[in-house]
């Protein structure tokens, strides 16, 4: 089988300067500038650092650990999330819980946000709904690489972007 190559004729001569197109584009810019100046309240953009966007449900933001009523993590350190994690960014150290009815709990629970690919598999794998990605936090900025490792306390303190867990 052979492919027939068709040569497409491009703009030529005066048209190839795109002067008229530039004018058209500028017209759009000027139109928006005039409209926004006349009615600043109706502007479609967000005043970003001051105003934060609420992410849609299902958006996978920074992880958080769901607490029990007493504030300790629900996590049982079963390592399902660490097992399923394709980036192997979850590091859990399990320990004996002082409460005899709880077999084990995470002494340490670290997520390396630089390694994380935000696939959400950890949330899917968790058998006790102890890890969620519903914080809506999508901006991470730190001065050190080590600060990108989120520790247990930090993950517990992170709240859902919705007041009521859905």
């Amino acid at each position: 089988m052979s492919l027939k190559v068709e040569r497409v004729q491009g703009d030529r001569g005066v048209e190839s300067f795109y002067l008229w197109n530039v004018v058209q584009g500028l017209a759009v810019t000027v139109r928006h500038a005039v409209t926004n100046l006349r009615a600043p309240r109706a502007v479609q953009t967000t005043n970003y650092p001051e105003e934060k966007k609420v992410m849609p449900p299902g958006y996978r933001g920074k992880h958080r650990l769901v607490p029990r009523p007493d504030g300790s993590p629900k996590c049982t350190a079963c390592m399902m999330c660490a097992t399923v994690c394709p980036a192997r960014c979850i590091n859990i150290e399990a320990g004996e819980h002082p409460d005899p009815t709880i077999e084990k709990f995470p002494v340490q629970f670290d997520i390396d946000l630089l390694k994380c690919v935000f696939c959400g598999y950890c949330v899917e794998a968790c058998p006790v709904d102890a890890i969620r990605m519903d914080s809506g936090v999508y901006t991470f900025a730190e001065f050190n690489r080590s600060d990108f490792v989120a520790h247990k306390e930090q993950l517990l303190a992170t709240l859902s972007q919705w007041a009521e867990p859905r």
């Binding site: 350190a77 079963c78 390592m79 660490a82 097992t83 399990a94 320990g95 004996e96 084990k104």
Partner: peptide, 9 residues
């Protein structure tokens, strides 16, 4: 070995 590692690792 208790709680050190899940065996599938």
């Amino acid at each position: 070995f208790r709680f050190k590692k899940r065996v599938w690792f």
